[in-house]
Design a protein around this nucleic acid. Sequence first.
DNA 1: TATTGTTATACTCTATAACTATA
DNA 2: TATAGTTATAGAGTATAACAATA
Lengths: 150, 150
Amino acid sequence: MSPTREKSPPLDQSRLAHTLGYAIARAAVTTNQLFSQGVGEPLGVRPVEFTLLQLIFSNRNTTQKRLCDLLRVPAPQMTLILDRLQERGWVERERDANDRRALHLRLTAEGERLAEESLAALRVAEQALDRVLSSGERLLLQELLAKVAR
Amino acid sequence: MSPTREKSPPLDQSRLAHTLGYAIARAAVTTNQLFSQGVGEPLGVRPVEFTLLQLIFSNRNTTQKRLCDLLRVPAPQMTLILDRLQERGWVERERDANDRRALHLRLTAEGERLAEESLAALRVAEQALDRVLSSGERLLLQELLAKVAR
DNA sequence: TATTGTTATACTCTATAACTATA
DNA sequence: TATAGTTATAGAGTATAACAATA
């Protein structure tokens, strides 16, 4: 290392300190990493896939349309994501008998097993946050985030 | 609309309620939208570009390496982003005289003007959050997010 | 006419390996 | 031998228009 370069001080982020978007984006780096290490890589599930598994688990026979609206995912993307989940045998689609345009979604037995396993794995991974957040702080953080999400 | 379909109840998200990653991702949808409407579209600046403008503004002559480390952006991506900022006349790069591998970054006059304008625009856009968050809550939220970001 | 879902397409974002030039 | 930055490339994520089937 060049002798003319002393150890550099941390970068000044003061101009970004007041913007909530930046704070959220930086926190998301941490949680994305926890997800990736604890769930994504070991179980081969992407964040959207994980989310869909949980939602279909709790909302048997919901339709693609309703998931698109909730997650603000465009319909064409939802088609592709569900194609992938179906190919891997985790999700099944079935036409609504009354409205034959709509597709109802449900998990296979294997899909349910994966939904359980991945949620448990994520809970373990996010326990790493206990070192920086008390359980009260964590609850408060979730409430405040929910307000922002409307 | 089919008379056999009543207005459907909201989807059950209870299985995701305890995961912080989900709460952050959902809140990010809101802040991304505020950025896009208030800054991104009117000024033609992407989130990373905005962030870099602010950081280079406050950290004159910082290097690409240090920005990569702070933002966890891979070096090749940083090269492309800065190429774009340079092409548009907002950023200049200059070789370090002592260590000729390193590049120092600085804003042009136009780049500084844009950094100021875009930050002001974001502050205005994020005022929309005042309807759901008191100023105390907002401050608290930022502190908690900073802890998560470590 | 409007809605659900699909196909096609393009553009951005992200990650990695291989390279250069310097140290 | 290690570091700063670039080039090349491939994969994942996102957005839009045009379409088929049904309502």
